[in-house]
């Protein structure tokens, strides 16, 4: 019999182990569409992370296979838009066996939590990962308040 919460937790842990194993078995069967983010339904693509580092807002976006000329970033006040176009990469003279990556134009926009200084914004693209560093405008920066 089960006695106490400890045993019940253990039971659930055991179930997690089983579930992980099942996931592992199934992982080889086909692409994990939901996880990988869908190109066909362009909602939510590219996937984006937004961090607040205190002095700046940092944005990361997954954009594999895009060069910097394919990406547009626009900032207006606290509104940010990332859009672009992924060109098809089909090589000349090849026949296709499997095409999952697709190509399409995309657009995502965000309302940032604070106003940013668009003039000092920086953007880098490395290994298919776009990093935007948007310094907060003076008014939005955190200030230390001395206690009297």
């Amino acid at each position: 019999m089960l006695t106490g919460w400890n045993d019940i937790y253990r039971m659930f842990e055991a179930m997690d182990v089983l579930r992980n194993r099942m996931n592992h078995l199934l992982a080889g069967l086909g692409p994990d569409w939901e996880e990988a983010g869908s190109w066909s339904g362009l909602d939510g693509w590219p996937r984006v992370n937004i961090y607040d580092t205190g002095d700046a807002i940092e944005i990361l976006a997954e954009l594999p296979g895009l060069s910097k000329d394919d990406i547009n970033v626009r900032i207006q006040g606290n509104y940010l838009e990332i859009n672009g176009n992924r060109k098809p990469e089909t090589p000349e003279g090849y026949s296709a066996h499997r095409v999952e990556r697709g190509s399409a134009s995309f657009s995502r926009s965000f309302t940032l939590p604070v106003e940013v200084d668009a003039d000092r914004a920086e953007a880098t693209l490395k290994d298919g990962l776009l990093t935007l560093t948007l310094p907060k405008s003076e008014a939005a920066k955190p200030k230390q308040i001395a206690i009297q």
Binding site: Y94, S95, V99, R101
Partner: peptide
Amino acid sequence: LIPRVDIYENDDEIL
């Protein structure tokens, strides 16, 4: 995660 892939073939290679 399972990465998305494209697979192409011609007379000389699989890409």
